[in-house]
């Protein structure tokens, strides 16, 4: 049996918001260590990998591994009904047909209970071995989201160029070009505002702007985002959770 209680429903709301536009159906795999999701978008370009660790829950028990096949659009309709500050509890039997979603306000004078029908989904797992990256950038997630939104207005592609000194985000469209250059710096007072650039080898990669626009829907999950890049390889975009992570792997575009 699964019983997981969050101190606030806001975490699950943000997680669903972050992934629902990339994938529609996915299995939530529940183990004694927490909840994991791995899912690939329909075009096989973007992969999400989610870990909500046991410590993200106020109370958590999962005696046996349980798979919850969830339609995220439906789940989102229910999850939006809770207030962000409500306790959120997920309950499922060992071989469940549905999952119970319970919201309680902190005064305990209102309890809302919903049941979501589960689906039997083919799990389509990709094996991701530990990848080696040539460059790692950590920066404020809100800044990355703004850069993505701004440059997406010019072009369907977003180029990321990393040199020793800086990282350049660039777009080249029909009516003009744009770029944003960031240098590394340390903000002692607000570490999350810092920009850290680690580069072993220079990087020049191009990505579909619409996929990166989906990735930055994870912005509310974390103050900072880490971007890991390797030549001619998928990039990794990571938002850290209090215990766990939301990772996006994005395949690059290549010159023909």
């Amino acid at each position: 049996m699964l019983e997981g209680k969050f101190e606030e429903s806001s975490l699950m709301k943000k997680v669903v918001d972050a992934i629902k536009d990339s994938v529609k159906l996915c299995n939530f795999n529940c183990t004694e260590h927490g909840v994991t999701v791995q899912a690939v978008d329909d075009s096989r370009v973007l992969l999400i990998s989610l870990l909500i660790g046991e410590a993200s829950f106020e109370e958590y028990r999962c005696d046996r591994n349980i798979t919850l096949g969830i339609d995220l659009e439906s789940f989102n309709k229910i999850i939006k009904n809770g207030n962000s500050s409500d306790f959120l509890t997920l309950i499922a039997e060992d071989s469940p047909d549905n999952v119970l979603i319970i919201f309680e306000d902190k005064k305990k004078d209102r309890v809302s209970e919903y049941s979501l029908k589960l689906m039997d989904l083919d799990s389509d797992f990709l094996q991701i071995d530990d990848m080696e990256f040539d460059a790692t950038i950590t920066m404020p997630s809100s800044e990355f989201a703004k850069i993505t939104r701004d440059l997406k207005t010019l072009s369907e592609s977003l180029q990321i160029i990393v040199t020793k000194e800086n990282v350049k985000f660039s777009s080249d469209g029909d009516f003009g070009t744009g770029n944003v250059v960031l240098k590394g710096f340390v903000d002692m007072d607000k570490p999350d505002e810092s920009i850290k650039i680690d580069m072993a080898r220079p990087i020049n990669l191009t990505f579909g702007a619409k996929y990166i626009a989906d990735i930055v829907k994870g912005t509310s999950l974390s103050e900072s985002v880490t971007i890991k890049l390797a030549d001619k390889s998928p990039a990794l975009f990571e938002y850290k959770l209090p215990s766990g992570f939301l990772r996006f792997y994005l395949a690059p575009k290549f010159d023909e």
């Binding site: 075009s43 370009v45 990709l126 094996q127 395949a251 690059p252 290549f254």
Partner: peptide, 14 residues
Amino acid sequence: NVSQASLIEFFLKN
């Protein structure tokens, strides 16, 4: 011109 790569090219299916 650029073409979009697929993740399948990089990650082997189990």
